[in-house]
Simulated scan of single mutants.
Amino acid sequence: MANKPDDPAIFETKKQYTHPPGILVSDHYIQPYGYSCYRAQGTKDWLIIYTLSGKGRIHNGASGYLSCTAGTLTVVSPGTAQDYFTEQGHVWDKMWAHFIPRLPWMDWIPSSNTDGPIFQLHIDKESSRRAIESAFSRVISYRLYEDSMLRDELTLNALEEVILLVASQHQSKKELDSRVQEVLNIISRDYMDHILIEDLGKRVSLSPSRLSHLFKEQVGDSIMETLMKYRLKQAEPLLQYTLRPITEIALAVGFHSPDYFSRQFSNHFGVSPSNYRKKYREASSMESVQ
């Protein structure tokens, strides 16, 4: 893990990383009025801030400043100017992390929902707040874990939990159509099976064309694109953590053609499955000896 949150780019595009994903730096700050941070060019990593109590302000481009209050989660994308401070008369109690995301996270990290470049979400449910606070606390505490390889993996897993919780909260606020949600549930449960839009339509009482249009409108990707991405996400940890042959992994996640799996994996991740596995192991070996 790096020590400098304003270090330059760690990745280039959504599909091609030049550095393994990880937490660059994270901490828990309780800062009174007078605390501020300003980075005109932003950073080339992501910044996530969760406010526990008090009040901060963060600049959101031409739209002005956003307030960061208890239960507010703020995500700043790479290259976005970072200008934030504790509000006068307040103490800002926040947890934060600069990080390089794992590739699948890019489908979960929400885009801006404000009039500027910043994403911000207020978590209303107390149970959801506790879940996010617990996961974020583990992001910070795992940095003290002695085994460096396990430390980095545990930290990433904890942050992934935060990202998923935020994505879930954001999605619920969008109030997905119950039939679209049912299709998403089917995909997550039966992704390894042969899935046809016609069959999905029958299960949710919609014509294939109406279901396809509604799903694309609400999710952003088509049903087949979503299924493809989900299958590839399931293949990623199998390549990382097992020695199973690539042909076997392809079949296990729902691809009936290993060659087709390799092409789709390469298109999505920017490298072939075998090279992805090789690069991941090389990066893990380098981190374990540091």
Rank of each mutant, 00 (worst) to 15 (best):
Y84I: 03
A70K: 11
P101C: 01
A97Y: 06
T74Y: 08
Y50C: 02
S127L: 05
G71F: 04
T114V: 04
Y65L: 06
E133T: 10
F99A: 02
D115S: 12
H90Y: 13
S128H: 11
I132D: 02
I100A: 14
Y65N: 14
S111L: 10
R102I: 10
R129I: 07
T72E: 09
I58K: 08
L66Q: 12
L66G: 10
K94W: 05
I132W: 04
W92C: 05
F119E: 00
R57V: 12
Q88E: 15
Q88H: 13
G54K: 06
P101T: 05
N113C: 07
D115W: 00
S67D: 15
A62E: 15
H90M: 08
A131P: 00
D93Y: 11
D124S: 11
R57C: 13
W108P: 00
G64L: 09
Q120A: 08
G71R: 05
D115M: 07
Q82K: 13
T80Y: 05
I109G: 00
L103G: 01
A131N: 04
T86D: 03
T74S: 10
T74W: 04
S134V: 01
A135T: 02
F99N: 01
S128R: 08
Y50A: 06
G116W: 04
T86P: 03
R57K: 15
H122A: 05
S134C: 03
A62R: 13
W108V: 07
I123M: 02
K125L: 14
K94P: 00
P78Q: 06
G54T: 07
Q82E: 13
A81R: 14
D107N: 12
K125W: 08
E126M: 08
I58C: 08
N60T: 07
D93P: 07
P104Y: 08
I49L: 12
S67M: 10
A135R: 00
K94M: 13
F85W: 15
L103Q: 15
